[in-house]
Amino acid sequence: MSAFMSVFADLVEGLAELLEPLFQASAAAAAIVLFTAFVRLLVHPLSRAAARGQRERAKLQPQIAELRKKHKKNPEKLQKAVMELHAKEKVSPLSGCLPSLFQLPAFFLLYHLFSNSTIGGEANEMLAHKLFAAPLGGRWADALGEGGVFGAQGLVYLGLFAVVAAVATFNYRRTKRQMATGATGGVAAGGEQQVPGMGAVLKIMPLMSFMTLFTVAVVPLAAALYVVTSTTWSAVERAVLYRDMPGAGGAAMAATAG
């Protein structure tokens, strides 16, 4: 593992050197943003496949409505029948989770790289890099101890929080609007539940993006940059891929939040 982390550190360091003429002392931070964009490009085909899967699931809504009527008094039979329908039509209800799952290794690589003082038995030189005044290995609590909320480091985090809040608000308004236009994955337009257990998820779904604020506050700044960049990418990507699918983008957010 240490040898792999050394290779990854060299990769980030090399990319930072290439970007240094443009970004100076914040070149490593720019390298992380570029690395995140590259990961999202690799995952994009899965996101497109998830959108296609959501369209296929949307086509099944009339049949699911019939199953709901048939098994109105037996939630267990309803759930089994819905799963059998998905299997028959070769539609996976979990396809929307794949983009997030494939991103986790990249996030944990950055988290590990900027959380350890040594890599391969040697001092971790990546910790010397900064985003403006804030060390990439530091956390919001460290910034608060070095000048408070409006100190040089604290202002970097305020900027990240502002971006996250703007993206979360965009997602919140879009999801609420989509949920109001018609059926989502588990609730019919009239408010009747189609898939047991989805009602509770749909109630909190519009607020899920705001949880990213907590993540940014507690992880190393390098990992926080990954989260902010990836979350912003996801918001734009969903707006494009689900633009003609009322309600579907909200259901996708439940599976791919963050």
Score class of each variant (00 low, 15 high):
residue 44 H to G: 03
residue 182 G to Q: 10
residue 243 R to V: 09
residue 13 E to R: 15
residue 122 E to F: 08
residue 13 E to K: 12
residue 219 V to G: 01
residue 253 M to G: 07
residue 85 L to I: 12
residue 224 A to L: 03
residue 244 D to S: 14
residue 88 K to L: 12
residue 110 L to A: 02
residue 62 P to E: 03
residue 34 L to R: 02
residue 97 C to H: 10
residue 158 L to K: 07
residue 4 F to G: 02
residue 151 G to E: 05
residue 209 S to I: 04
residue 176 K to Q: 08
residue 13 E to S: 15
residue 8 F to C: 02
residue 132 F to W: 14
residue 6 S to F: 05
residue 52 R to H: 06
residue 253 M to Q: 14
residue 42 L to R: 07
residue 170 F to S: 13
residue 62 P to Q: 09
residue 219 V to M: 06
residue 113 L to E: 02
residue 152 A to N: 02
residue 152 A to W: 01
residue 25 A to K: 15
residue 13 E to T: 15
residue 5 M to P: 00
residue 18 L to M: 10
residue 247 G to R: 06
residue 153 Q to H: 04
residue 69 K to N: 06
residue 238 R to E: 10
residue 95 S to G: 08
residue 196 P to S: 08
residue 64 I to M: 14
residue 69 K to Q: 13
residue 30 A to L: 12
residue 14 G to K: 12
residue 111 Y to N: 09
residue 247 G to T: 10
residue 231 T to H: 14
residue 36 T to N: 04
residue 135 P to M: 05
residue 112 H to E: 11
residue 168 A to D: 02
residue 40 R to C: 10
residue 113 L to T: 03
residue 152 A to C: 01
residue 240 V to H: 09
residue 124 N to K: 03
residue 80 K to P: 00
residue 36 T to H: 06
residue 31 A to W: 03
residue 131 L to C: 07
residue 185 G to E: 10
residue 52 R to I: 05
residue 257 A to Y: 12
residue 6 S to I: 05
residue 188 A to R: 12
residue 226 Y to M: 11
residue 59 K to G: 00
residue 235 A to R: 03
residue 239 A to C: 04
residue 201 V to D: 00
residue 64 I to V: 14
residue 77 K to S: 12
residue 187 V to N: 07
residue 174 R to I: 04
residue 184 T to C: 08
residue 21 P to N: 06
residue 234 S to C: 06
residue 5 M to L: 14
residue 245 M to C: 05
residue 196 P to K: 07
residue 34 L to C: 09
residue 229 T to G: 07
residue 31 A to P: 09
residue 162 A to W: 02
residue 50 A to N: 02
residue 87 A to C: 00
residue 44 H to P: 01
residue 79 Q to K: 14
residue 67 L to E: 02
residue 41 L to W: 11
residue 163 V to T: 09
residue 123 A to S: 13
residue 86 H to S: 01
residue 209 S to G: 15
residue 186 G to A: 13
residue 129 H to Y: 13
residue 187 V to W: 05
residue 72 K to E: 12
residue 254 A to P: 01
residue 99 P to V: 10
residue 91 V to E: 00
residue 75 P to N: 05
residue 16 A to L: 09
residue 99 P to I: 08
residue 141 A to E: 07
residue 55 R to S: 09
residue 140 W to A: 09
residue 44 H to D: 05
residue 15 L to G: 11
residue 232 T to Y: 04
residue 48 R to H: 04
residue 237 E to H: 14
residue 60 L to P: 03
residue 154 G to E: 04
